[in-house]
């Protein structure tokens, strides 16, 4: 499974895994959005700990969820980002948009 979702009282955590590209991001997006629309949590955490590769599709994935969470009145936190993923995210200025913690 490319994404495992944990639903808590205060937040939803999506543990992403494997390689994030245009192919896999579509599946991850579907899973996450389904939970967000049903649960409407105040915060979404995207955990990148088990992500081994990411191209700019990962940026689209975060941006899209950021937008959806804004509509729902919540926030997005991005966590456990490796140096490679950080490098991709920096290109987009995403490191300023979402709360990026190590």
């Amino acid at each position: 499974m490319a994404v495992r979702i944990e639903i808590g009282p205060e937040l939803v955590t999506a543990y992403l895994g494997g390689e994030i590209d245009h192919h896999s991001a579509q599946l991850m997006r579907r899973e996450i959005d389904h939970t967000l629309l049903v649960d409407k949590p105040p915060a979404l955490v995207l955990d990148f700990k088990d992500v081994t590769f990411m191209d700019s599709s990962g940026i689209g994935l975060v941006m899209g969820r950021y937008r959806l969470m804004q509509e729902l009145g919540g926030e997005v936190r991005v966590t456990n980002v490796s140096s490679h993923i950080r490098k991709v995210m920096r290109l987009s200025g995403l490191d300023k948009l979402a709360v990026l913690s190590k």
Partner: peptide
């Protein structure tokens, strides 16, 4: 769709 960041070439160039 809003799901593509438009950064493909930027990533390649950088």
């Amino acid at each position: 769709s809003g799901e593509r960041a438009g950064l493909g070439f930027a990533v390649m160039q950088s």
